[in-house]
Design a protein around this nucleic acid. Structure first.
Lengths: 334, 334
DNA sequence: TTCACGTATGACAACGATGTCTGAATGCGC
DNA sequence: GCGCATTCAGACATCGTTGTCATACGTGAA
């Protein structure tokens, strides 16, 4: 039936323990013995049973990726990054969607860990900030790394980008183009990044000596519809903005759609900026000026941190990128 | 340390085998005994080790989902559907991206199966049509179900939608609006659905008595850029089409972008139709008339078929939906 | 020559469940 | 009141690896 370590040991003429040593790259195996074992493994097409390794050993060769529904595009990049590093490390990734609003959150995560014996966990936003999950993982002493956490938590490693600086960069870009009245669409209130982007917007205005005007700032919810609604209100102002900076691309697409429906020319009549550089950003017309989050790299790096042998806590910042496309330009009046 | 079945058996005052019986819903356990066991499980917060169950039993409580990079949105829906059904069945999903062009495809899939002992596999397009994968799965006697396969394969179950009929529906919709010159952008040549959609387009024209004109049909590759390029050529024709039907939404977005860049009004100067109803379809301006593929339902149904006890082969068709939005309308000339 | 030590290998128990088999209790018909 | 089928529970082996411990060999120092 199944090819087992025993078959390999027989074929190579050594004990199963020696095969195990080769498999796990342990010391104290003669080079020549190792070669014989490797040859037998290849000849028999042997893949060790994860279940048996997990049961007998201290490692499960599996990590879990916990996420709640962001955009498919975001999740996809996160999965891609985690998966790429996992593969390099010879570890399997268990992608696990969970609902951060669930009552039984801790129990679910605990169950997952008990069932699978995972070696570690990657938390992607907003699971990064679910206190129940963090507490459960700590209680069990499971290693984990957080991607773009909203809350501070010095005890575990994390990777992130600088949302404040990125929003500052974008706002400064608009100011440099000659915009003085810049509308801003806030992100979803539950999301920490929303505050940070808002703060970056204010900081850039301050530095440029432009007064912060609450009327130019509208609440949004990270979705298309809320962007469109915010645009309606902003454009209807007695002194409307010449540019609107939305906290993510979906909302920027909403702004764009509303502008088009009024027959406004983008960017001449209105500049529009987004955030995230999702696929959408290059698929709308005109393509969006936006901030590229290094999502895949964040995920890759997080996984690298999780699986390295050292256990010190690292907080690593990865660089973002201001992507200038044609949805922003000099205002007509300037 | 870890709570095991032994702890549960002690707490409930029965043998471990009896606990196992309750866990696996076997017959021959008195109701009262079952209750005691359930109570102990709950009290101790016990989750059985998947590794141990896999090793000892005939099932692994895991299935694999194999996919190659389609759009993130598509993958997301597939994962979502498979995951939902898996959860209901108490089974874990292993999402596994693979490269259908890889030389070592069969070995990779074989390794996955050996390592994880999966109970079954879900194949999503285009992995559905990788001969190496199909052969390897069959050689090992692993059950699998295919989602939207391109090739016929009567030996295993599959779920799919009717691409021919859907393209026919869309084309007929345009014809009914008064369009007589309808451009068509083909999908990627490697993809079976491309042919089927093309065929549906022709069938609808035939039925309406409109001659098929090769000049109105351009090759595409399912991406934004190819849609845009196709639009350039089609619109430059001496007698340009009044509507363009692209084989997927990404390409339709490309058509839309090019039309905008010429200052054309959509749908007055040009109607644009897509296929798939991805998130994109409602995020561009104007929102796209398109075909909604029941992707999530296909995935859910495939998983249901995979995990049911019967082993007969079923080929199940799920209904699509023509989603009419504002990117299509009566032609100006009509 | 002996001893200690680093290297290389193997025997055996253990991980935490399920499968198989055996045996006891229960209910039923006669 | 007895035998027999039915219903339940437990003992024990087993799955395929790794962890622990024992052992054998070769080498250099005392």
């Amino acid at each position: 039936m199944r090819v087992t370590i025993k078959d390999v040991s027989k074929a190579a003429g050594v004990s199963i323990k020696t095969v195990s040593r080769v498999l796990n790259k342990e010391k104290y195996v003669r080079e020549e013995t190792k070669k014989r074992v490797d040859a037998a493994v290849a000849a028999l097409n042997f893949s060790p049973s994860l279940a048996a390794r997990t049961l007998a050993g201290r490692r499960s060769f599996q990590i879990a990726l916990l996420y709640d529904n962001h955009s498919p595009h975001y999740i996809h990049q996160v999965q891609d990054g985690v998966w790429a590093r996992s593969r390099e490390e010879g570890v399997r990734m268990l992608a696990q969607p969970i609902d951060v609003a669930s009552q039984t959150l801790a129990a679910e995560v605990g169950g997952l860990i008990d069932e699978t014996h995972v070696d570690g966990v990657i938390l992607s936003s907003p699971v990064t900030d679910a206190p129940d999950v963090l507490a459960e993982l700590e209680r069990r002493g499971v290693r984990f790394v957080r991607i773009s956490p909203g809350t501070n938590h010095a005890l575990t490693s994390s990777v992130f980008m600088d949302d404040v600086q990125a929003a500052d960069d974008m706002t400064s870009h608009l100011i440099n183009q000659g915009h003085k009245r810049i509308g801003f669409v806030l992100g979803h209130p539950n999301h920490m990044a929303s505050d940070q982007r808002h703060f970056g917007y204010r900081r850039a205005l301050d530095r440029a000596g432009i007064a912060y005007e609450p009327a130019l700032v509208r609440q949004g919810a990270f979705d298309f519809a809320s962007g469109r609604e915010a645009a309606e209100v902003l454009i209807a102002l007695p002194a409307p903005p010449t540019a609107i900076f939305a906290s993510n691309d979906d909302m920027a697409a909403g702004v764009l759609a509303y502008a088009h429906s009024l027959g406004l020319d983008v960017p001449q009549d209105l500049s529009v900026a987004g955030f995230d550089d999702t696929a959408l950003a290059s698929l709308v017309w005109p393509p969006l000026t936006t901030i590229r989050q290094p999502v895949r790299e964040l995920a890759y790096t997080a996984t690298k941190l999780l699986l390295r042998p050292e256990t010190d806590v690292i907080h690593q910042r990865l660089p973002h990128e201001l992507v200038i496309r044609s949805s922003t330009g000099r205002p007509r009046t300037a």
